[in-house]
Amino acid sequence: MKLRSLLPGVFLVLIFFSAALLSYIWTPFDVTLIDIKSRFQAPDTTHWLGTDHYGRDMLSMLMVGARTSIAVAIVAVGIGMLFGVPLGLAAAANRGRFLDEAIMRGNDLVFAFPALLIAIMITAVYGPGAVNAIIAIGIFNIPVFARLSRGAALSLWKRDFILAARAAGKNTTRISFEHILPNITNLLIVQGTIQFSLGILAEAGLSFVGLGAQPPIPSWGRMLADSQTLIMLEPRLALLPGLAILLTVLGLNLLGDGLRDWLDPRLRRER
């Protein structure tokens, strides 16, 4: 029905994913190469997007930066799903009992710590790094997925086909995996893309304040932080990484919206 957001979403996401993947085998220039002589070069045929204040190639920096952002966000969403979904399913299967209450209160507790605070605590003790960013964003993702899967599973548990499966003698674990999980996959995929885009924003924010990936690994947030003092001199250094974040997140959100419309059983239901 409404697939107009799916295509641009897929297009944008593909661009940044392929740039990130390509950066593992090839970048136009070496991003660790500091060449003060060629700094602040405007875009030309050698440096398509120009160079930064150390003479590094901006396009190469952005490609490796995409890799950092995407890697951190993917692992963080993975952590969230891996722990959150089973917790949510278990809570729903034991509705109203102790386990459910314990899991939900645990969720509330984690919600009291925004990802940034977790990152701050970890950094204060262990020092900054990309792994800290992953852990902080990942922990914050767990209750998101737990809550989502619990809510969706609860409404499924009321449906007669679950009762029928129980009447057929299947136990709750088996029902959770055979009947509940396949019916919430769409929801998880859609939420996954949304959390993915939030993860990219969060990673950029953490790197921006120095709590994320550390030099010499380029990351979009760090590039923005570096450009802050040079914004009057060379606005391009601030505009490019910001646009990269904006377009990636926009692409993921469009993809999420498009997927939701495409996968929504209410729109596809026949009869």
Binding site: R159, D160, F161, A165
Partner: peptide, 15 residues
């Protein structure tokens, strides 16, 4: 023992 429920729409796993 087997059972048939009321609602023909929610009695089956749609997948």
């Amino acid at each position: 023992l087997q059972v048939v429920f009321q609602d023909p729409y929610s009695s089956f796993n749609p997948r």
